[in-house]
């Protein structure tokens, strides 16, 4: 039983790792279509990516749209999260559920709705249209992350600040906000990623003008022509990999330095 589980588990690790491992080498391949093993290695397609407006424009669009979505989402979600975490009121359960709904509705369904409604509002093929749609889809995850942080916030800290002479506004600025800052940043990051990765709605409403990176990638993969797709894939993967591994490396290094520092301190004594 145990050994069987173990064997399966190792196989699963390979299954999960394989597609991630393949991405970076593929981007370095000289082959113009999918080919394994690669006939040779070069950086030529990276150069193409960084010089092709057909790729740079969607990348820039995605960054703009995701940033704007993040700002708008935070403006809407932060007050709502405060209301729902900190207050008891009639209709709270329903409000909570309503907030989560955009997560429960398949994106294809929303895509149909946006395609039609935004079409009438002349919002299709505009940045604004995509931003408005993405904000809606980003609300639930941002709210979840932020409210989890808010629930962990010790409110006696605010009482302490008040007792020490801070007005409600000062308390918010000097105590609540700084302590919640990491939580706010993380929930904003979730909003950003949600928008940056969103594909289905973007396929339907972003058009040529507001074309996002995922939409461009989708088209490119569908046409199976452009080897630059390997480059952008490997870049996207590397960003994630570095973002996830870097903190571990930093803390490992820091740990080593502090132990060294402590050793020195011990020797000095």
């Amino acid at each position: 039983m145990n050994t069987l589980m173990r064997v399966i588990a190792y196989a699963v690790i390979i299954f999960i790792a394989a597609p991630l491992v393949i991405v970076v080498p593929m981007s370095l391949s000289t082959a113009s279509s999918l080919q394994f093993p690669p006939p040779g290695y070069w950086l030529g397609y990276y150069a193409s990516y960084f010089s092709d407006p057909g790729w740079l424009r969607p990348t820039w669009n995605s960054i703009v749209i995701a940033s704007a979505t993040t700002v708008l989402t935070m403006i809407l979600v932060v007050p709502a999260a405060f209301a729902l975490v900190r207050h008891k009121f009639w209709g709270k359960g329903v409000a909570n559920l309503m907030l989560m709904m955009p997560m429960a509705v398949p994106h294809i369904v929303m895509a149909v709705g946006y395609y039609s409604v935004f079409g009438q509002m002349r919002l299709v093929h505009t940045h604004l249209g995509v931003i408005l749609a993405h904000t809606c889809l980003s609300v639930p995850i941002t709210f979840l992350v932020l409210s989890a942080n808010l629930k962990g916030f010790d409110r006696t800290l605010e009482r302490a600040a008040r007792s020490l002479g801070a007005s409600p506004l000062q308390t918010f600025g000097h105590v609540t906000l700084p302590i919640l800052r990491p939580g706010l940043l993380i929930s904003a990051l979730f909003a950003f990623i949600q928008s940056f990765d969103e594909t289905v709605v973007a396929i339907f409403i972003s058009g040529r003008d507001a074309e996002t990176l995922p939409r461009k990638m989708f088209d490119s993969i569908r046409q199976e022509a452009d080897p630059v797709i390997a480059v952008i894939s490997s870049l996207l993967f590397l960003i994630v990999a570095i973002a996830l591994i870097a903190p571990h490396v930093v803390s490992a290094l820091r740990g080593r330095f502090t132990t060294k520092g402590q050793e020195k301190a011990l020797i000095a004594q």
């Binding site: 006696t156 009482r159 302490a160 008040r162 007792s163 020490l164 002479g165 801070a166 007005s167 000062q170």
Partner: peptide, 11 residues
């Protein structure tokens, strides 16, 4: 208000 009472509290 609490901030105007000049009371020290240890929680």
């Amino acid at each position: 208000d609490p901030q105007d009472r000049n009371i020290g509290i240890v929680f």
